[in-house]
Computed example of a mutant assay.
Amino acid sequence: MPETSYECSDCQESLYGQRYILRDDDIYCIKCYETHFSHQCELCQQLIGCTSKDMSYRDRHWHSGCFLCGMCNRSLVDRPFATKADLLMCVECYSNEYSSKCHACLKTIMPGSKKMEHKGNSWHEHCFSCQRCQQPIGTRSFVQKEGNNFCLPCYEKQFAQQCVNCKKPITTGGVNYRDQPWHKECFVCIGCKVQLAGQRFTSRDDFAYCLNCFCNLFAKKCASCTTSISGLGGSKYISFEQRQWHNDCFNCKKCCVSLVGRGFLTSKDDILCPDCGQDM
Rank of each mutant, 00 (worst) to 15 (best):
4 T>K: 15
7 E>R: 15
7 E>K: 15
9 S>W: 00
9 S>R: 01
11 C>K: 03
12 Q>F: 09
18 Q>N: 07
19 R>D: 01
19 R>T: 00
19 R>W: 00
20 Y>W: 13
25 D>H: 05
30 I>R: 00
30 I>N: 00
30 I>C: 02
31 K>F: 05
32 C>E: 03
37 F>R: 12
39 H>I: 03
40 Q>D: 12
43 L>I: 07
44 C>V: 00
47 L>M: 13
50 C>M: 05
50 C>S: 15
52 S>D: 12
52 S>M: 09
54 D>Q: 11
55 M>W: 10
55 M>F: 07
58 R>I: 07
58 R>C: 10
70 G>T: 02
70 G>P: 05
71 M>E: 06
71 M>Q: 07
72 C>F: 12
72 C>A: 13
74 R>C: 13
77 V>H: 12
79 R>V: 07
84 K>D: 13
85 A>R: 06
87 L>G: 02
87 L>V: 05
88 L>I: 03
89 M>P: 01
90 C>F: 08
91 V>C: 04
92 E>G: 04
93 C>M: 05
93 C>T: 03
96 N>E: 14
97 E>P: 00
98 Y>W: 09
98 Y>M: 04
99 S>K: 02
103 H>S: 15
104 A>C: 06
104 A>D: 08
105 C>H: 02
106 L>C: 03
109 I>H: 08
111 P>L: 02
111 P>S: 02
113 S>C: 06
113 S>Y: 07
113 S>I: 02
114 K>V: 13
116 M>N: 06
116 M>W: 00
117 E>S: 14
119 K>W: 05
123 W>M: 06
123 W>N: 04
124 H>S: 04
126 H>R: 02
128 F>C: 13
128 F>W: 13
128 F>K: 10
129 S>W: 02
129 S>K: 09
130 C>Q: 03
130 C>I: 10
131 Q>N: 14
132 R>I: 06
132 R>L: 07
136 P>H: 01
137 I>V: 11
139 T>A: 12
141 S>M: 06
142 F>A: 09
146 E>R: 04
149 N>E: 03
151 C>S: 02
154 C>D: 15
155 Y>H: 13
155 Y>S: 04
158 Q>A: 15
161 Q>I: 03
161 Q>D: 00
165 N>W: 06
165 N>K: 12
170 I>G: 01
173 G>C: 10
173 G>H: 06
173 G>V: 07
174 G>R: 08
175 V>F: 04
177 Y>R: 08
183 H>K: 08
186 C>N: 10
190 I>E: 10
190 I>T: 14
193 K>S: 14
194 V>Y: 05
197 A>K: 01
200 R>Q: 15
203 S>N: 05
216 N>P: 03
217 L>F: 02
218 F>W: 08
218 F>M: 11
219 A>Y: 04
221 K>R: 12
222 C>A: 00
222 C>K: 01
225 C>E: 01
226 T>Q: 12
230 S>W: 01
233 G>I: 07
237 Y>V: 00
238 I>F: 14
238 I>W: 07
240 F>G: 10
240 F>L: 12
240 F>N: 14
248 D>S: 14
254 K>A: 11
255 C>T: 05
255 C>K: 04
255 C>G: 09
256 C>L: 13
263 G>C: 14
265 L>T: 09
265 L>Q: 13
266 T>V: 14
272 L>A: 09
274 P>D: 10
275 D>S: 13
276 C>T: 11
276 C>F: 06
277 G>L: 09
277 G>M: 08
278 Q>N: 10
279 D>K: 12
